[in-house]
Computed example of a mutant assay.
Amino acid sequence: MSWIASVTVRKIALAAMLAAALASQAGMARAEPPQQGDMVKFVPSAEDRPAPDIPFISAEGQPIKLDSYRGKTVLVNFWATWCPPCVKELPSLERLNAEMGSPDFEVVLISIDRGGARIYEPFLEKLGIANLRSAADSKADLLRAFKAPGLPTTYLIGPDGTIRGRLVGDAEWDSAAAKELIKYYTSSS
Score class of each variant (00 low, 15 high):
Ala117Cys: 01
Glu89Trp: 06
Leu181Phe: 09
Ala171Asp: 08
Arg166Met: 14
Ser175Trp: 04
Gly161Pro: 04
Gly116Gln: 04
Asp104Ile: 03
Asp141Trp: 03
Lys72Asn: 11
Glu94Met: 13
Leu109Lys: 01
Leu90Ile: 11
Pro122Glu: 05
Glu121Asn: 13
Trp173Cys: 00
Glu99Leu: 09
Lys147Gly: 14
Met100Trp: 02
Leu127Asp: 07
Ala130Gly: 11
Glu180Gly: 12
Leu151Ser: 08
Ser138Arg: 13
Ala80Arg: 06
Arg95Ala: 15
Gly165Pro: 00
Ile157Gln: 05
Trp79Ile: 09
Gly115Tyr: 04
Glu180Asn: 14
Asp104Ser: 14
Pro103His: 08
Leu90Cys: 10
Cys83Ala: 13
Arg133Lys: 15
Arg144Leu: 13
Thr73Gly: 09
Ala178Met: 06
Val74Phe: 05
Ser175Tyr: 03
Glu180Gln: 15
Ser102Lys: 07
Arg133Ala: 15
Leu181Gln: 04
Gly115Cys: 08
Ala148Phe: 05
Val108Glu: 05
Thr73Trp: 06
Asp113Ser: 00
Leu124Pro: 01
Asp137Thr: 12
Ala135Lys: 03
Ser138Trp: 03
Ile157Tyr: 01
Ser111Leu: 08
Glu180Met: 10
Pro149Ala: 13
Thr153Gly: 10
Val108Ala: 12
Gly101Val: 02
Val74Thr: 14
Thr73Asp: 08
Arg164Ala: 14
Leu124His: 02
Arg144Gln: 13
Pro84Asn: 11
Ala80His: 10
Gly128Pro: 00
Asp174Lys: 04
Glu106Pro: 04
Leu96Pro: 06
Thr81Arg: 12
Cys83Val: 10
Asn131Glu: 12
Arg144Glu: 10
Glu121Thr: 13
Pro84Tyr: 11
Thr81His: 12
Ala145Trp: 02
Tyr120Pro: 00
Arg118Met: 12
Ser111Phe: 02
Ser134Glu: 00
Pro149Thr: 13
Pro84Glu: 10
Tyr155His: 06
Pro85Trp: 12
Pro103Gly: 15
Gly161Leu: 05
Lys139Ile: 07
Lys147Asn: 14
Lys88Trp: 13
Glu99Ser: 15
Ala80Thr: 12
Arg114Met: 11
Pro91Ala: 09
Tyr155Gln: 11
Ala178Ser: 13
